[in-house]
């Protein structure tokens, strides 16, 4: 990609497009990957509310897959997940394994 020249810049270094960080993927930061085990999921959405990276997709109030483009693999969701009958609905596995 061609780097911007001074004429291409917004005056005052203002960023004109709110929320354009969605174009900056952070998934590659991950060392561990959360895996969703749907059958243990009680749809409490704790994983969604506690995720610091807005990387748990929810559609029509239903938990969906992880957004691996942005998940940094912190493991908060897995730790906070109550799961079903003591069985976690999220497991952390090492990337590349």
């Amino acid at each position: 990609m061609k780097q911007k020249g001074w004429k291409d810049l917004a005056p005052g270094s203002v960023i004109l497009e709110g929320g354009n960080a969605v174009n900056f993927k952070t998934g590659s930061w991950r060392a561990f990957r959360p895996v969703w085990i749907e059958e243990n999921c009680i749809q409490c959405l704790f994983c969604w509310i506690y995720c610091p990276d807005m990387a748990v997709k929810v559609k029509d109030s239903k938990r969906n897959e992880f957004d691996y483009d942005f998940c940094k693999g912190c493991g908060i969701c897995a730790l906070e997940c109550p799961g079903k009958k003591g069985k976690k609905a999220i497991e952390m596995i090492e990337e590349g394994k």
Binding site: L9, S13, V14, L16, G18
Partner: peptide
């Protein structure tokens, strides 16, 4: 919605 006052790195600060 705009953001005023970003952190700009050496690749662009000079141009600003």
């Amino acid at each position: 919605p705009k953001s005023y006052g970003p952190l700009i790195l050496p690749d662009l600060y000079h141009e600003y």
